[in-house]
């Protein structure tokens, strides 16, 4: 796969994540509990160095909103060192923890905020990724309740529409 194709896959994956963050933060009690202690307006970004795709998410009233592509004054940045390093976790081949463990990503910003962002990302991945990937990439794969299975179906079902809406924000 060439650079442009990899970049397109990463951009699409980030867009899917942005949509899932919005849906899950609206409907998941676990996610709402996780971001309850975040300051209103706190933002985080995920992107690819040096000038690759990126998204920014912002906490607005206890829900995460897509602030658009690129970096919009984030408090925390999760930066993949190149597009290959971004592809591995974004396509479920390695977990987010392992991306840091293998130096594929660097955290810019307060570490505590980075850890909170990482936990929020794990919650979103629970709803976004299939079970066989979760079993491979999570230290302790989640066991979903009936409510969580329903939300997972909702997240997957609304994903294309949400991605289209967020794509239009560029």
């Amino acid at each position: 796969m060439g650079y442009r194709a990899k970049k397109a896959v990463v951009a699409a994956s980030l867009l899917a994540l942005s949509t899932a963050f919005e849906t899950v933060s609206k409907r998941s009690p676990e996610m709402r509990a996780e971001i309850a202690r975040w300051n209103d307006g706190r933002a985080f970004a995920m992107g690819v160095l040096p000038r690759g795709p990126a998204i920014t998410m912002r906490n607005e009233g206890g829900r995460l909103r897509y602030a658009g592509p690129g970096y919009h004054d984030p408090d925390v940045k999760i930066l993949f060192k190149n597009v290959d390093n971004a592809l591995l976790p974004l396509t479920g081949r390695i977990g987010a923890d392992i991306a840091f463990v293998q130096h594929r990503a660097a955290l810019h910003g307060e570490v505590a905020h980075g850890m909170q962002t990482s936990r929020a990302l794990a919650i979103v991945q629970t709803y976004l990724l299939p079970g066989f990937i979760l079993r491979r990439t999570f230290k302790r794969p989640p066991r979903l309740s009936a409510r969580q299975w329903f939300l997972k179906a909702w997240v997957m079902g609304t994903l294309p529409f949400g991605m289209a809406v967020n794509f239009a924000k560029r």
Binding site: D97, F100, V101, A112, G114, R119
Partner: peptide
Amino acid sequence: AIDDGSVTYNPED
């Protein structure tokens, strides 16, 4: 403790 970066590298969640 759970906001400490060391947790990332721990083998168990």
